[in-house]
Design a protein around this nucleic acid. Structure first.
Lengths: 232, 232
DNA sequence: CCACCATTTCATCACCTGGTGAAAAAAGAC
DNA sequence: GTCTTTTTTCACCAGGTGATGAAATGGTGG
C-alpha cells in the first residue's frame, strides 16, 4: 500500500497548492492510475486512492466528481498523447518511405511508439498500458471509449497496409489486426508470466526483446494470411 | 440482470434439491461464471450471484465458503476439462504425424480444441474463456493459478516445436508463445470490437474465420522469428 | 485590513458489503 | 412415527462504500 507522506501541512486545512509547484490533481491521477491498473475499477476504493495520494477523500470528488469520472480522467489524460505519437510515427514512415513501404515497416511504425513510450515515458505509462489492455478485452466496458479514441489510428494502419498490398481483403486485414493487438497488449502489460514460464530465459519487462521479434512475427502473419486467402 | 425465476418453492425452507435433477451447486457456479466474466471479481457481489441463481446469499457460503473460494471453484470446474482436451489433441497429432509434423500443425493441435469447445461446448464456455483471458493478463492476480494449471501444456507445446525445429532457441519459442497467447485469448474473448471496427466485415463470434487465419498467422510468425534469430 | 474565493478538511449520511448463527423444513434411516 | 442429517431460509452484524454539505484556511485583489 506504501502510503505517501501526508501532503497536508500540520497546521490545518488551507490552500497551499500554488506554493507546491506540483499540482495535486496530477498526484491524484497518478495514484488512481497505478491502483486501477493493478486491481481494476471495482477493486479500488476512493479512499485507497486518497490515501495513496496523501489527500482527503472529498478532494477527489471536488476535482473529478464521481468515481467513474475519475477513471475516465485517468484514461483520457494519456490517450491523446498516445494517439498523437502514433499518428506522427505513421506520418513519418509514409513520408520517408514513399515508394518502398513494406508490411513490416508499417507495423513497426504502428507499434514502436508504444514500446518506446513504455520504455522512456516514466513509470506512469507502464500502469497506463496495463489499464488499456484491461479495458481493451473487457467486453462492453470501455467499448465506446476504445472506439472513440483508437479507431482512427487503426483505420489508418489498415488503409496504409492496403496501399502496400492492394490485393489484400479488408476482412483479412482486420482479423490480422486483431491478432496483432492481442500480442501487443499482452506484451505491454508485462504480466511477468513469461518469466516463470521460461524459467528465467525471458523477462516480460525486456521490451527490447519484444521489439526484436514482434514486428517480424506480425508481418509474417499478415503476409501469409493475405497470400493464403487471396488464393481462395 | 435478468433474474432467474426464484427456484425456491412457495412453501418454505426445506430440502428439495435431490428432487430436481439439476444440482443447485452447478446453478450457482453458472451464475457466478457469467457475472465474473462480465464484471470481474470485484465487480460482482455475492448478492448478485444469489439473485441470478435464484438462491439465498447464505447458500453460496454454505456450499463454497468465502467469495474468493467461489471464484476459484468457477475457475477450476472447467480447467481440468480444458487441459485434458488440449493434451489429447496434442497426443493425437504427435501420434498421427510421427515423421511429418509441421509448426502449423502443432499450433493447430494446441489452439483448435479451445475454439472447438467454445463453439460446441455450450454458452458457459464462452463466459469461461472471457474469465481466463481476464485472469491471464491481470498481473499478480491469477499468476499462481495460471501457472499451476496451464504451464504443463505450454511446455508440451514448446518441446514439441523444438522437435520440429531443433535449431530454434527456447528464448524465441517462449516469446512467440506469448504473442500467440495474446492473439488467441483476445479471439476467444469475443469482445465485439472487431465488429464495429470493421463496420460489419468481421464478427468476433465467427470462430470459423479465426480458425481459417490464426493457425497460419502464428505459424508464419514462429517460422520467421526462428529463422531470423538463428541467423544472428 | 478586509472581503472574496478557490481549495482543503471534517463529520456524517444512507446504503451496501461479505459473512454468520440459528431456526425451519425436508429427506432418509430405523 | 420418530430421530438424525442435510439443505435452505431468515435475521442480523460489523465494517466499508461513494458521496455531500458545511466549515475552515489562506492567498489575492481591492
Amino acid at each position: 500500500m506504501t502510503a505517501a507522506k501526508p501532503r497536508a501541512r500540520p497546521g490545518g486545512r488551507g490552500r497551499p497548492s500554488k506554493a507546491k509547484g506540483l499540482d495535486l490533481k496530477e498526484t491524484i491521477l497518478d495514484a488512481a492510475e497505478g491502483l486501477f491498473a493493478r486491481h481494476g475499477f471495482y477493486g479500488v476504493t476512493t479512499r485507497q486512492v486518497a490515501t495513496e495520494a496523501g489527500v482527503d477523500t472529498a478532494l477527489i470528488h471536488y476535482y473529478f466528481g464521481a468515481k467513474r469520472e475519475l477513471f475516465d480522467a485517468v484514461f483520457l489524460r494519456r490517450a491523446e498523447i498516445l494517439n498523437q505519437a502514433r499518428g506522427a510515427s505513421m506520418d513519418l514512415y509514409v513520408q520517408t518511405h514513399a515508394g518502398t513501404m513494406t508490411v513490416e515497416g508499417v507495423i513497426e511504425a504502428f507499434i514502436d511508439p508504444l514500446l518506446r513510450i513504455s520504455q522512456d515515458g516514466g513509470p506512469g505509462w507502464k500502469s497506463y498500458f496495463v489499464l488499456v489492455a484491461q479495458v481493451n478485452n473487457t467486453p462492453a466496458w470501455g467499448g465506446e471509449t476504445m472506439t472513440r479514441f483508437f479507431d482512427p489510428v487503426v483505420h489508418r494502419l489498415v488503409e496504409t497496409l492496403k496501399i502496400v498490398r492492394p490485393d489484400a481483403a479488408y476482412r483479412d486485414l482486420y482479423w490480422c489486426y486483431q491478432f496483432l493487438t492481442g500480442s501487443m497488449m499482452l506484451a505491454l502489460s508485462e504480466t511477468g508470466r513469461i518469466d516463470s514460464l521460461s524459467e528465467g530465459e525471458c523477462h516480460s519487462s525486456d521490451l527490447e526483446a519484444v521489439r526484436a521479434r514482434l514486428f517480424a512475427y506480425c508481418a509474417a502473419g499478415f503476409e501469409t494470411v493475405i497470400a493464403r486467402q487471396a488464393r481462395t
